[in-house]
Structure formats: structure tokens, C-alpha cells
Design a protein around this nucleic acid. Structure first.
Lengths: 351, 351
DNA sequence: CCCGCGTTTGAAAGCGCTTCCCGGAAATCG
DNA sequence: CGATTTCCGGGAAGCGCTTTCAAACGCGGG
């Protein structure tokens, strides 16, 4: 008992619509109708076919359906790193919206490498996915535009359209940098460090620009109020920790630091603590993203919140809208907001 | 300039192997050979075909290939919540291994709901995926076994085989609970709280069992040394925070608490801090998983490390091995290890 | 010059499904 | 009761690809 039948070791010997038709003594087209136009077939016949399907263990063949012209039930998404908490939440938002539309989601991490991105894009295109959501690894969008032109819809995620003829969901990074800087300036800080990453990354450039504009708006001299420091790759807590020395070495020493994401901020907090610099007493720290644990650090991290989950949902929404008749590409913009917690404080008086 | 051609608005009008053949003035089978058996076609012909492919913008049709019998390049994975940092890392491990094998990955979050799981399973089966990696939402494995029997390989992730005829990658949760308890007992704790979740979740039952056995091994009375408390759903930081009151209300008050994951531990740390209970001075706290931020909390969290990324890789490895000829289902077991940090200390003397 | 061999290429079948179109049966109406 | 309409089910084509089999071609040896 509990034994399989002897011959069942063969894979991919799934029952086809034909076996069902034979078992139900109808034609294959009737079986197909039961599946796709149930109301066009008489109840008794339908019942018979359904029984036959159960009997032979019928499972639809998606490849055949798609070949015949059915729309794909798969969408793809390419993010820099799906294990990063920011992207993990974005991808969950995408997934949830797609699920509502009966779609599955293929995910891929590009690790910022264009080659990896291209490999994924080609495979997804060959599969005939319904569309691809992508946070571009490089700044060149022409490949994506061409892909879209060939018939696979593309939606940019966390990236502005930048003139490309694509849909996009963007977050206003200039504004994000601005509110962070505004907050620090209001607290009296006049010497601020901005920890950015690689020069090529657009979102970081924009945030730095936002900081600069904020300082200029306040009537201060940008070159003396702002120090920009690049965090080397890979962007881990440890690396960010070691950057603390650079920050502290700047003269005159900054009284606040804006980090390009919460992981870097985490490293700063750790590094500052180890060096005996009280936060926010001697140094205020601002992060970016507002990932789940930001609130629980000590001190709780002041950070710029991005609507991660909503970002994903909105991107999926745009993708699903792509095949509607008179579709026009559009860009959705989110505005990040400052979340003030305990890692920032008025600049220390005296000293 | 920059205008599209007028007719290109039609989607899915991709060039087929036929247009390529026509453009290269060869037959379709030759084009196919260029794609699949390049060495069987003369260099000059091949060159000509390749040029033609570039000219018409040819992209392979995966659906047609699959229909013809080509193995699927997609695998599926179903986890409880891909946005949870534990599962996000597991899924990244899966993804990386699959990428090496030229496979794509569909992810799905079941949120522990069997209905959601079933929906995903059916869709994936219809697509004819190469296999499905699943962290089962319920304890019933029969559906998965049947799925596997119908020809779609199934690998259990973070779940023991439990007698089912499937491959599995498991982590020894009994051992994990054991090392956590051993550590506390060695520090002199004699009154320990275990924060579990819903009774039905196997991994949590196992961890509790490990704790019990450890206490018994030490020659202590389990019923007086251990208090089990259930954390209500949803398992968020806030909920875990509120559970602190229950822990403190137990008489005699526990001197240490073992949490079933790091998020709950985070909540405990926060709740204890707010109530003025020093950690680890008055209360030692142990987490589970060792997620990325555990090391950066204050105090740094002592926790039981699970090999998250490796878990995913190993599961993907098993899946890829499924179609090798004499394949036998097997189970891989990982052993979690204790990571001692600052949130645990010897039990306070006196008091 | 012809034959035979190895090398390349082409014609055709068919994977499982959907869909168009038509025949026959049942139902409705005059 | 015959004619017209309605409804249901079947036959067949073909989506794009791979693959088998045989034909065609070119070359060197007899």
C-alpha cells in the first residue's frame, strides 16, 4: 500500500486535452470550451468533461496556451539586490499587485552589473513575459527602450523616465536630500557631511544635489557647509563603519552626517559609538529608506522614508495598464518624507 | 527624429524563425540548427543566418520551444513572506544557484495561507516549471507529494522530509533551541521564558522541544525552569513589545528570554528598555535567525544563526539534481549555531 | 568521366491548445 | 406538420519550434 504505479517515473507525461476528450467521449474543442467558455457548453456535457479531467489528472499546458496567443501570466522584475531590505519590500509590493491580477513574478538581482541585467532581460524576453519592471543597473536606457519597442512593456522602478519613452515610478531624491538637510540646518548645523556611493548612481547624485540646494536656499556657502564623502563598495555595515574616520578627520569637523541609506547609517552609529562619539550629542546622523529596523536602533534613526511597498505596487499597476488600448507612458512620482527620531539633535552649543 | 515607425504599435508581432529563414534564403531548419547545433551548419551559412537574425530582430519564442519538449528555464519558490529578511536571504541563495544553471526564479509569498499556496502551486504547475521550492504553509504535505508524482519536482525548504517522498533542506531546530538554552543555563539562568508563535508551526515546536530537552539534560525540572509564552499574530516588533508585560508578570520572574526570531527579540529589547529593565543586567535576551541588523542593535543581540543563504543554495542544488537519471530523494540538514553577543550575561547575583 | 562518400540543406510532421466554421439536432413558430 | 431559428458539439487549421529523413551538392579516387 502507498506504492506508486510502476510506470509513473516518466516525467512530463501529463495528460493532454485529448485524453480528457477521449475519456469524456467528446471532441477536444469541447474540452477547450469547458475550460475557456464554460457557458457555451451544456451542463451535462460540462459535468462529464470535468469528471474526465479529474479522472486523468489533467493540468493545462501553459506553453501551448501562450503559443496559441494567450497573454503571459508572468511578469519579470530586476532589482539591484532582492536581499536588500529596501528592494525586498519593493518586490513584495509588486508581487501583491500582480497576484491580484493573476500574474506570477520572476525576480532577478543584477548586483548593479549591466551584463547580468542583459542576461536576465534576454531570457525574460524569450519567455514572452507580460512585462518587465526594472531598476536600471546603468544609466543607459536605450536597451530598455528598444526592448519595449519590440513589444515587451518596460516600467522603470525607483528611477525617473529621464526622457525615455517608458513608464516609470520615481521618488523625488532631490527633495529627499533637501528635507534631510533642512532638518539639520534648522537644528543649527552648519557643517554637514554627505556620505554618497559611487559617482555614477543617479539617485545618490540627486540626493546630494538636494542637500546642496537646501544649503544654498538657507543662504549659506555650500563649499564650506558641505563635505561629500564617497563610501567605497561594497556598501556594507563594516565599510561604513570604517568611513567614520574620514568623517572625523575633516576639519573643521562636521556636526552631522547624512547617509545615503540606512545600512550606511547603521555603520556610522556603530563606528561613532566605538570611538566614543555620542549620537546625537556630538554628531547627528540621518539615514535614508526607513527600513524596518531603523526605528529600533539605538539611538532610533532619523531617516528619510521612501514608500517602498507602494513604490512596488504602483510600478506593477503601470505595467498592468500597458496593454490597455490607448495607453500613454507616464511617470508616477513619490515624495519621500523625513522621519525624525533620536539620532539628530540641535548642534552642541559651545565647544 | 526619434520617431517610431507608424505600425509598430502592435504587440507580440515578433519575428519568427521563418522571417529569418526568408531573409537569409535558407530553410527554417537551418535557422534552428544555427541556434541549437551551430557546428552542423557551414560557417558561411551560419554567418548569413546570424546577420538575418540581427536584421529582423529575432527573439526566440520560449513557449514554442517548451511545447516542443525543451526543459523549462523557470523554477518556482514559495516562501511565507519574501519581504522578511530571513526569507529574503534564502531566496537570494536560491536565485544565485539557479542563475548559474541558466534558470529564472518565480517567487511567491504565501503568508502562511494554504489557499494562497495552492493557487501558486497550480499556476506554476500549468507553466510546467522545472520544479518548485516550497516552505510549506501547513503541515499537510500530501498535495506536494501528489504534485511531485505528477512530474513537477518539489523540494522542501527549511522543513524536514517528515517521511514524505520529497527532497528537503532542513535546519535542526531542536538543536537550535538546545544551544540557546544550554548557553543560558551555563550562565546560571534557572528561570527561562520561551516566546513561541502559533502552536501549529513545526519549526517553533521543535525549538521549544530543544529548549525542554536541554533543561532536562541539565537535571532541572522543566516545568519550573521554563515558561512558554505565545506571541500573537502578526509577528511584528510592536506586538512583541507588548508581550514584555506578560514575561515580567510571570512569577517568579524569568531572568532570560528566548525569542523565536530576531524580530521578536527586537521587540523585547525595545519593550524592556522602555520599562527600564537593563539588558542583559536584569534580563538576558536571545533571538533566532541572526538577521543582518542583529549585530548592530544595542545591546548587540545574542542569537541562533541559521545558514540562510546556504539553505537557499542547497535547496536549489537539490532541485537541479532532480532530473538526473537515478535520482533518489534526499534530505540535507543544517545545524544552527549560537552567536554570543552582548544581550546575554550571567544571571544577576543576589536580588 | 563516373561513382561513392561525406557534408549540408530542405520538406514535413507534430508538440497541446484555441478558434473559426459548419452540420445536425432540438426548439420554436406559422 | 413543415420551416426557421437556436443551440451544441466536432473537424481542422495553425501558433513557432525541433527533428527526422532524404535529397542535393561537392570532392576525390578509380
Amino acid at each position: 500500500m502507498g506504492q506508486d504505479e510502476g510506470d509513473s517515473s516518466q516525467r512530463s507525461r501529463r495528460a493532454s486535452i485529448r485524453q480528457v476528450a477521449a475519456a469524456a467521449r467528446v471532441s477536444t474543442s469541447t474540452v477547450s470550451n469547458v475550460l475557456n467558455n464554460p457557458d457555451v457548453v451544456a451542463t451535462s456535457t460540462r459535468r462529464r468533461v470535468e469528471d474526465a479531467m479529474a479522472e486523468v489528472g489533467y493540468v493545462r499546458n501553459g506553453a501551448a496556451r501562450q503559443l496559441r496567443g494567450a497573454p503571459s501570466t508572468i511578469a519579470g522584475c530586476l532589482l539591484l539586490d532582492t536581499a536588500n531590505p529596501f528592494f525586498a519590500e519593493v518586490s513584495r509590493g509588486i508581487e501583491d499587485r500582480l497576484t491580484e491580477a493573476g500574474c506570477l513574478l520572476i525576480v532577478g538581482s543584477t548586483d548593479s552589473r549591466a551584463t547580468q541585467e542583459n542576461t536576465y532581460l534576454r531570457m525574460m524576453e524569450e519567455l514572452g513575459v507580460r512585462g518587465i519592471l526594472v531598476n536600471p543597473a546603468g544609466s543607459r536606457l536605450d536597451r530598455l527602450v528598444r526592448l519595449s519597442g519590440r513589444g515587451t512593456p518596460v516600467v522603470l522602478v525607483d528611477h525617473p523616465r529621464a526622457g525615455a519613452d517608458l513608464c516609470a515610478v520615481a521618488v523625488d531624491d532631490v527633495h529627499g536630500g533637501g528635507v534631510a538637510a533642512d532638518h539639520l540646518l534648522a537644528l543649527g548645523h552648519r557643517r554637514i557631511a554627505f556620505l554618497g556611493g559611487r559617482a555614477g548612481v543617479r539617485s545618490l547624485r540627486d540626493r546630494a544635489e538636494g542637500v546642496r540646494r537646501s544649503i544654498a536656499r538657507a543662504g549659506l556657502d555650500v563649499s564650506s557647509a558641505l563635505v561629500e564623502i564617497a563610501v567605497p563598495e561594497p556598501c556594507t555595515v563594516e565599510v561604513a563603519d570604517s568611513v567614520v574616520d574620514q568623517v572625523l578627520a575633516v576639519s573643521p569637523r562636521p556636526t552631522a552626517v547624512i547617509c545615503f541609506n540606512d545600512v550606511v547609517a547603521l555603520g556610522q552609529l556603530r563606528g561613532l559609538r566605538r570611538r566614543g562619539i555620542p549620537v546625537p550629542g556630538q554628531m547627528s546622523v540621518i539615514g535614508y529608506d526607513d527600513v524596518q529596523f531603523a526605528e529600533q536602533l539605538s539611538p532610533a534613526l532619523t531617516t528619510v522614508r521612501q514608500p517602498k511597498y507602494q513604490l512596488g505596487r504602483a510600478a506593477a499597476e503601470l505595467l498592468l495598464a500597458e496593454d490597455r488600448p490607448g495607453h500613454q507612458h507616464q511617470e508616477i512620482r513619490f515624495t519621500p518624507e523625513l522621519v525624525v527620531r533620536a539620532s539628530t539633535a540641535p548642534v552642541a552649543t559651545g565647544g
